[in-house]
Design a protein around this nucleic acid. Sequence first.
DNA 1: GCTTTTATGAAACGAACGTTTCAAAAATTG
DNA 2: CAATTTTTGAAACGTTCGTTTCATAAAAGC
Lengths: 193, 193
Amino acid sequence: MPRIEEFDRESVLKNAMNVFWEKGYNGTSMQDLVDATGLNRSSLYNSFGSKLELYQDTLKHYQKETGGMFQKALVKAKNPLEAIRLIFESFLPEIISDEKSKGCYSMNCKAEMGNQDKNIRQWLLNTQEQSLQLFQNLIKSGQEQGIINKRLDCRTYAYYVFNTFQGFRMTGILVKDRTVLKGIIEQTIDLLK
Amino acid sequence: MPRIEEFDRESVLKNAMNVFWEKGYNGTSMQDLVDATGLNRSSLYNSFGSKLELYQDTLKHYQKETGGMFQKALVKAKNPLEAIRLIFESFLPEIISDEKSKGCYSMNCKAEMGNQDKNIRQWLLNTQEQSLQLFQNLIKSGQEQGIINKRLDCRTYAYYVFNTFQGFRMTGILVKDRTVLKGIIEQTIDLLK
DNA sequence: GCTTTTATGAAACGAACGTTTCAAAAATTG
DNA sequence: CAATTTTTGAAACGTTCGTTTCATAAAAGC
């Protein structure tokens, strides 16, 4: 019976995300979203509920995209330590080509919305734990293989790598020098050797 | 001849900064600022020009405050390496007691406003170079004293420490565990030894 | 092909936005 | 105390905000 939606949901989320990414949540107006998605206001509300819910949907969309990048790095890597390096390096193109200085969607969200909405805060906590687990597992198997040192336990190292990664995303907003960025990665890796 | 301002400018900036800090620039309304500062709208506009100019004044105010923290750490430290540790540790109380998860004023600014206003962007670049110079000088004299290794040049290490510091401020938004945070500091320091 | 169900388009909603206006109040100088 | 200069208070400015409304259009089931 129902009339079918005319738009591609993923494509709408991608376009909405790009606006939020550039202007932030509060800096983005519903009109901006109408313009960027090409959807009518009614359709936006009918399909996504509200501005805040749409924003949260873009977070999930981003998570899916980023998860894909991580997986690609894992597949490509010959060992756990190289996997960590590749994860960092896989963000280099995005950082260097980011001429608008939009930064990292997740960091922007954390800074602007981390203390404004319970659901968003929980999403941030979930993705954080996910990243920590990923790093922890890599480090653990790296230690078992003798590639990563055992001076500290894998959870402690995971926090360290996670911390550097967040710094990496923030530094990349104003620093676009590939040599500098690769240097930061190199030193993070070196500590684990 | 002139009637004198009734308010304390520093105190107004402090109160305005706290609102911006909690809600972000775009999340803060002029009414919020009127409420927080106790000033009338007219007085705010008369004395600070506009919302954006007031925000930029709070950035300078923050810079002054933070600069003071850095100086205290430098005075207290017995050597350059300890100075770096003390700089990181001086933010621990703020991080741990930040129950509202307001995060770092400077990181919030970078994420929300770094790509929105030229003046703000320049301020961010200036404070970044200032921090880099501080770390670079500390590392250089640490290397000269033989406390810090000479495997890499002081500028490269400065970027590394700067990067970790930014991560530290972001991590501290959701991670309040003192042991974890101190662990991150410790490993950053260790690399320099 | 009529009924049912949902999506779409355009207009409008009240509320809140950042900013301006202007008269009244207050303080300093002559 | 009068003249001058600036701050202050209250109201209002036009605009934009996120959201709602409702008539119309379109697709699916009988």
